[in-house]
């Protein structure tokens, strides 16, 4: 356990000055900030809206940007950059000659990527709440303070987090095996686009395809409603089929990756 924590700390030490780490922080900050600016410039139009609708708009807009395209691509990028640090410097051989169990080195890397995604999504929750409240302070006409959905927000993002884990495991393995940028990023990109198409076309087996999970999680959660009143029935069911598949893929591929690593020669 100690070796695991030391490895995890080392992963942080290595990445703390890289885009891989800062992306996890800047992405939510940037998106929430831009959304806030958008709301500020349109404040007059929304002055009459009830707090609930404002929240749903604000949260929904951020989710539309984040959940559909950005979350899968961010996951792909994180998995890539965590592994690329070793590929680029040719340091795999060094990592595996340290007196640490191979599984510790491997799992610490994986868990670190997982943590980065978790942190990023947690920051989305935090910044959404923060900026929404800030809006109601700057423009009292925007009555964000009249409604609360903090817990719901956490549930939504937690579900998104779980739905991204399948992609994370797959991409982590691709990035571990391939040194170059194009293969894992290409597969990730094609996967994400196909996932979006499958999910939005409503294909009934889309839930079996990990890259469509983030989008499925959103569409299942936020049914497109015609009137604002209907959206009150926002039902958050975290453990749906797509989440189960995502978790199963994540666990299976994680262990498969370890056994592939054991069999492979380290260059």
């Amino acid at each position: 356990m100690k070796a695991f924590l030391l490895s995890l700390r080392s992963e942080f030490f290595k990445t703390r000055k890289t885009l891989a780490f800062w992306c996890a922080i800047l992405l939510p900050l940037l998106i929430c900030m831009l959304m806030t600016i958008g709301f500020l410039t349109n404040a007059e139009k929304m002055a009459s809206w009830p707090g609930e609708l404002l929240w749903i708009r604000f949260v929904g807009n951020v989710l539309n940007v984040m959940g559909v395209l950005l979350l899968p691509m961010f996951t792909v990028f994180t998995a890539y950059s965590i592994n690329n640090i070793e590929h680029r410097a040719d340091t795999w051989k060094m990592l595996f000659t340290l007196p640490l169990p191979k599984f510790t080195v491997y799992s610490a890397k994986y868990v670190y990527a997982l943590l980065l995604i978790f942190i990023s999504l947690a920051l989305f929750v935090l910044f959404t709440i923060g900026f929404a409240n800030l809006l109601s302070v700057i423009k009292p006409g925007l009555r964000f303070n009249e409604y609360h959905m903090e817990f719901t927000l956490m549930q939504i993002y937690f579900k998104l987090f779980l739905s991204a884990l399948g992609i994370l495991s797959l991409q982590f393995l691709f990035s571990l095996l391939w040194k170059d940028f194009l293969k894992p990023m290409g597969i990730g990109f094609v996967g994400t686009i196909s996932g979006i198409i499958m999910a939005s076309a409503g294909w009934k087996y889309a839930y079996l395809f990990p890259y469509s999970h983030p989008m499925l999680a959103l569409t299942n959660m936020l049914p497109r409603t015609k009137t604002p009143t209907q959206s009150r029935q926002l039902v958050i069911n975290i453990l749906t089929d797509d989440v189960y598949v995502s978790l199963a893929v994540a666990v299976v591929v994680f262990f498969a990756g370890y056994f592939i690593l054991l069999k492979r020669s380290i260059k």
Binding site: T97, L98, P99
Partner: peptide, 29 residues
């Protein structure tokens, strides 16, 4: 392995870290 120090082919160094940080990272591990 805990009693071996090694250098294989090109030294395995994180180029984006300073020389000292490379050593600090290893010392931490």
């Amino acid at each position: 392995l805990s009693k071996i120090g090694s250098l294989i082919e090109q030294p395995a160094i994180y180029l984006h870290l300073t020389g000292r940080e490379n050593l600090v990272n290893r010392a931490g591990l």
